[in-house]
Design a binder for these strands. Sequence first.
DNA 1: GATAATAGCCAGACCGGTATACCTACTTTT
DNA 2: AAAAGTAGGTATACCGGTCTGGCTATTATC
Lengths: 196, 196
Amino acid sequence: MPNRDPRAKGTAHDRLLQAASSLFYDNGIGGTGIDAIVERAGVAKKSLYNNFSSKSDLVHQYLEARHAEWLDLYERRMAPAGTPQQRILAVIDAYRDHAEHAYERGFRGCGLLNAAAELDAGDAGRKAVRKHKEQVEDLLAGHLNELLPHSPDRARRLAAQISFLLEGAMARAGLEGDSMRLLDARDMVDDMLQAL
Amino acid sequence: MPNRDPRAKGTAHDRLLQAASSLFYDNGIGGTGIDAIVERAGVAKKSLYNNFSSKSDLVHQYLEARHAEWLDLYERRMAPAGTPQQRILAVIDAYRDHAEHAYERGFRGCGLLNAAAELDAGDAGRKAVRKHKEQVEDLLAGHLNELLPHSPDRARRLAAQISFLLEGAMARAGLEGDSMRLLDARDMVDDMLQAL
DNA sequence: GATAATAGCCAGACCGGTATACCTACTTTT
DNA sequence: AAAAGTAGGTATACCGGTCTGGCTATTATC
């Protein structure tokens, strides 16, 4: 690890991915140039192409990293929660926290969904985002199965409904720049869980 | 109306807007260049800048046109429907029809939301999209008020819930490229309306 | 000395936008 | 009715800037 700026932390790969994440979220994928990424990362352009085969490769690794990051966040938030209901609400709270934390620097909704909107119909990145959303739905379905052990079908439908609700609330919250809509969604899901 | 290609229909303005709509939806805003638009429209580049002050102006007119188009579609679909329940389901069916119609050429979800995802946090276009979504929600709230004349608050919350559900289902359907998720959403809303 | 990072330049394409010049149809003035 | 003007179209060339990606020469660390 030679010539790196000693003030900087982490490997060039990590710092590039982190810089790209931030810029992709704020300005979009197409709106973010390679030069801006390497400048933010404090790294030579050559280092980018040493670590990533192309911008498209960087985008895909960005999507995968976000995916892993979110799933990890869900797990950590749900672990301390006692009841299945609490674990489901914890997923929504994760979104809310993210929205509130991102508020000052410009909250723009779900980074994965925004990225997918820029990719064309057949792109592998779209499939990655789709997989992420399906995994979240499966996760919800798992907890709902605990609540409805004798109605796996109903649990599955309810998981779909909650994940749609969450997705829509996140999109609307992104348009409005704050987390109010996610709070609404939390209340809705809370009511739905109470009514079980 | 002078030198226009006789094979072509409509004014340069209309044809540019139509070409831009198609390309913006398929390839995104950033992914669509001015040259591609004028070529698709079969029009001189100068004509674009005679009719629109800039690409950004074209984008805004695109958003407004889509907004008007959707609202008009809702009205026309809801008019023949007898009950408030049917009118609400008609909105979902409008989305479904659109998804199915767009299937062959690559369905990518809601064009307005996709466009918003490319615009940065403060852009006026984002506000336009937000306004559109709120108007749809208001429209749903109006019909729900007919069903729940003594619970305006509950009608309002239900309208929010349905609009979130619809938004989320549309996003997921866009990721998957078909209208299955919208069919699921229709069933969910149908159940919700039955339970009133 | 080998390795791996650095800064910086360059190629080729594409971007949004402008400039020039010509053409045609309608409209106004004579 | 004829002539002149105008509005809006056409086609093409061009501008400065930015894009991705690669290249070279240099420098710092092992």
